[in-house]
Design a protein around this nucleic acid. Structure first.
Lengths: 340, 340
DNA sequence: GTGAAAGCGCTAACAT
DNA sequence: ATGTTAGCGCTTTCAC
């Protein structure tokens, strides 16, 4: 058996209560005793049992991380990086992170993640868009929750998002500065708050430049913003506005790839004929293809902030709801070019 | 407070011991009682507290997953998929998975993952190549361990690997069947058992076809098998064997990309001039680039098997060491072509 | 400033 | 076939 609080107490000639108080750095304990006990803790290499602690404190020391399979399995490093961020920051807050991948079409009758039914988490981080029924069930639980990269309707949960409006603005402004005037927007799932905001940024940039917003240049759908949908959107867009559009801003990098693929299949060069800019910055060294201009989202940071926030929420009951918005950055690479 | 075993016992008019025995489906309990208690458990929506269980059983119900940052951060979905596999299977075995990302240059003086120091796991899964000092420390702990995709030296740990020799054979045999005779091997970190085995498969295929093994066609290093190293390896290879080589087998997909990049930069078309085949099958829909021929590794399956094995190891003390080898599959796509 | 003791929810040995 | 009870390692209240 591992060393317990009793071993420390015996060795230090104090009671286990004293050891416990030393561990929690209670002021009632004299410095002399504290030092003595701490030395022995170190010498014996003692670490408190999480089970015993959990039993008495009714806390688990675990945080649940919920994400849909859509998001996590679509081998995108986007949410993986966020997950790693929470993991890294969890050390600082002495939590462990438990992952649960739920169905993208989570229904009301579906069971909540096992760690919730098991009462094995003190709080939950929800990453990406999730079905409403999940949010409703979470709401009923009265457990601390932080949403990442998604703002659920009708709920006062805390959220960590990025400045999507600003990102959209930066991307489109970049195109405008390159001389583009006929700039299309390609997005999937326009119900998603992030995508809506990116479109809003698009509109703002055009407006500020005195360019009018042409709905014929805006192609959105209710689909997941994936590569294939980018391809289809480009097809619709370019078969109507033939020869007109000189640049495309897509709501994410995956769709940008689909657009580029379509353009190539139709003998349009990127960026020579058409400039394309994405969002997210997920494609770094994984491809030999053109390096995509995009808007960087601080993925690791998002995870870190989420962990900090859920931790604060758990420790401080009064803290109710907090919305954190992280900044984004324009990344100019090779898929955008000055209009000749 | 949540419902406890006492609530169930009271409601069922039995002792808490009986409830406990029913939960563990002990034969001493009559079916009548079992049914009665189970009904009430369901009705009250009771789940046993993991902390309380852990405290008495001296088990945590957690499995640690250790991986180097090299492997996990290099935004490859390879290990992410494996991790998800363990996560999926963990439900069946009623475990939770805790992740720990360690430094690639883990030294003897470095601290073990927090979940080990905290005694917060019952067993550990180690994914990918890890430094020897980590293995030595793990060995000293006498905790169940399963290695994934790596076979540590001097140790009797259980392992889950894939049939790398067979995979190498399949890849190279595929090239041979396409008429290629001057086939190069590109690999990084030849100390890695998997890479060595893939090279072995390469040699076997050549031998079987009566082709002789030419060391000038084999380019390995001690580096991490990444894209950039693939590029450099191709540079060395093709500047010496100019116009000679018609096909390349790389030890993984990342290096294949580097090789293809080099070839393009030097005006060699893939697959028209040179065929390239990789290993791992990690690049699916993330790129507009050429679809790589490769050898598929069942990533999710690996995770699942690892979880099953660690679970067996924990539950059955007698089970000591077991080596599982999973099959691989040739995936013919567009980067390999019949030699004209 | 420190100790004694109750009790968190459960398992398992022992009693009945 | 079921109940009683000790005890897992810790926190916390109350005494001293």
């Amino acid at each position: 058996m591992a060393v317990t609080i009793k071993d420390v107490a015996r060795e230090a000639n104090v009671s286990i209560a004293t050891v416990s108080l030393v561990i929690h750095n209670h002021r009632r304990i004299s410095n002399a005793t504290k030092n003595k006990v701490r030395d022995i803790i170190e010498r014996l290499n003692y670490t408190p049992s999480r089970s015993a602690r959990g039993l008495v404190s009714n806390k688990t020391g675990n945080i649940g991380f919920i994400i849909t399979n859509d998001h996590f399995l679509r081998n995108e490093p986007f949410y993986t990086q966020i997950f790693i961020g929470t993991e890294i920051e969890s050390k600082e807050n002495d939590f462990y992170v438990l992952l649960s991948i739920i169905e993208s079409d989570f229904k009301e009758r579906d069971a909540l993640p096992r760690f919730i039914l098991d009462r094995n988490v003190d709080g939950v981080i929800v990453a990406g868009k999730v079905p409403e029924p999940l949010t409703e069930k979470l709401l009923a639980l009265k457990i601390p929750v932080v949403y990442i990269d998604y703002i659920p309707k009708y709920s006062k949960f805390s959220t960590i998002t990025v400045d999507n409006v600003k990102g959209g603005y930066l991307a489109v402004n970049h195109l405008i500065e390159l001389g583009h005037k006929r700039i299309a927007f390609v997005g999937g799932d326009i119900e998603h708050p992030s995508i809506r905001d990116r479109l809003k940024g698009y509109a703002q940039a055009l407006e500020k430049a005195g360019l009018k917003i042409d709905n014929a240049l805006i192609e959105t759908s209710e689909e997941y913003p994936a590569r294939a949908n980018g391809y289809n959107a480009a097809k619709k867009l370019f078969s109507v506005n033939n020869g007109n559009i000189t640049a495309v801003f897509t709501c994410n990098d995956a769709m940008a790839l689909g657009v580029i693929q379509y353009l190539r299949d139709n003998n349009r060069r990127v960026p020579d004929d058409i400039s394309v800019i994405g969002f997210d910055d997920i494609l770094t060294e994984r491809t030999n293809d053109i390096q995509l201009s995009t808007v960087n989202v601080p993925k690791m940071e998002i995870g870190i902030e989420a962990m900090r926030l859920i931790s604060a929420l758990i420790k401080d009951e009064k803290l109710l709801s907090k919305k954190i918005i992280l900044p984004v950055e324009l990344v100019e690479r090779q898929s955008t070019k000055k209009l000749l």
